[in-house]
């Protein structure tokens, strides 16, 4: 009798311990959101005891790993096509929004002063504009004395989501670019030099007089790079600032977009920064590890709260608009199911 009670007590204790036991969940993919995922992960572990292991291996790697189900979630900057999502049984949802800026190395040019347009950027990277005192640039910048120096375009040599976003923008603003080069995580650049990673592009631009490159905004602001203004779709010249990224994010058509693949490149809003894009997470709709899948969803729902948003903003990421968060939560409940068809969350 006594023994049974004792056993019962142990069983109850084990059960309780079981429910309170830490659930570790694994993610892999894009390097662009890695800093914020890791900061979120650290804070989340402090709060709940559940640890996130995130490996920053690149968007392509993230897609590969989640298709093979070797991780609990994959992360990708590039949108996965609908057919591929369907065949791999994945739910795609955005987490934070990032932006890409242009950085230059020109004597006497201060940050956020030089005005460029998308068409000029495309012509620079097509090799059509080769001097900084080209009429197209001087016309926009009557107050800046531009040298008769060679323009040296610098690009990311490693294939990256940043390149996909940047070339996606050039595709939008230049028909010539679209037909000659196109958009992908790496492309065949007609001119210029390639450097590895944001730090490689920054270093090469800094080394090269007359250099121009593109980097993620979080990287540019953390390193105080000389960035340029860009003309947006509304025709206004805007400097890369958080308000402009938010305006672009808010103007995107999230409701109409399938798989949350809302485009905010060259957004029409009055003060929108033109090169803005969300980064995505891919979650299996038929999770093998139900616990980890539930924890992943809980984690991101927490990350969308005020507490998570503050961490993201401190690292210069733009949190998602509130109505998009609601859509994501609905998608979680409707789409992620256990084998017997019940919602995981």
């Amino acid at each position: 009798m006594k023994l049974t009670t004792a056993l019962g007590a142990i069983a109850v204790a084990t059960l309780m311990a079981g429910s309170a036991q830490a659930v570790d969940f694994n993610g892999a993919g894009a390097s662009f959101p890695a800093p914020v995922y890791q900061s979120w992960g650290a804070k989340y572990k402090e709060k709940t005891g559940n640890a996130l292991n995130y490996q920053s291996i690149g968007s392509g790697g993230g897609q590969n790993q989640i298709i093979n189900r070797t991780v609990d979630f994959g992360a990708s900057d590039a949108v996965m096509p609908s057919e591929k999502l369907a065949s791999a049984k994945l739910l795609q949802f955005p987490t934070v929004i990032g932006s890409v800026v242009a950085t230059v190395n020109l004597e006497g040019v201060e940050t956020k002063k030089l005005k460029l347009t998308g068409a000029i950027l495309a012509d620079i990277y097509l090799g059509k504009i080769t001097k900084w005192d080209d009429a197209a640039i001087t016309k926009l910048n009557p107050d800046i004395k531009l040298p008769s120096q060679a323009v040296v375009p610098v690009y990311r040599s490693d294939s990256s989501g940043t390149t996909a976003i940047f070339t996606g923008y050039l595709n939008e603003v230049s028909a010539d670019w679209k037909s000659k080069v196109g958009s992908a995580t790496s492309v065949q650049w007609p001119v210029g030099a390639g450097a590895k990673g944001n730090e490689g592009v920054t270093g090469t631009v800094k080394n090269t007089k007359g250099g121009i490159g593109y980097v993620e905004y979080i990287y540019a602001s953390a390193n105080n790079l000389v960035v340029t203004q860009l003309q947006n779709k509304a025709g206004k010249f805007v400097a890369p600032e958080v308000a402009g990224f938010q305006a672009a994010a808010a103007s995107a058509d999230w409701k109409g977009a399938k798989d949350f693949a809302a485009s905010m490149i060259n957004a029409p809003a009055e003060n929108a920064w033109p090169i803005v894009s969300p980064t995505y997470v891919l979650l299996p709709k038929d999770p093998k590890n139900i616990e980890a899948s539930r924890e992943t969803m809980k984690f991101f729902l927490w990350a969308y709260t005020k507490e998570g948003a503050e961490i993201a903003e401190k690292l210069h990421y733009i949190p998602l608009p509130a109505d998009v968060v609601k859509q994501v939560e609905e998608a979680f409940k409707a789409e992620i199911k256990t084998p017997d068809g019940k919602p995981v969350l």
Partner: peptide, 19 residues
């Protein structure tokens, strides 16, 4: 002129090459 070698191309492109 900037160029590429076989090894450098593999290092650059491998992370974003889907299975």
């Amino acid at each position: 002129a900037p160029g590429a070698t076989i090894a450098s191309t593999i290092a650059n492109e491998f992370p974003e090459a889907p299975i």
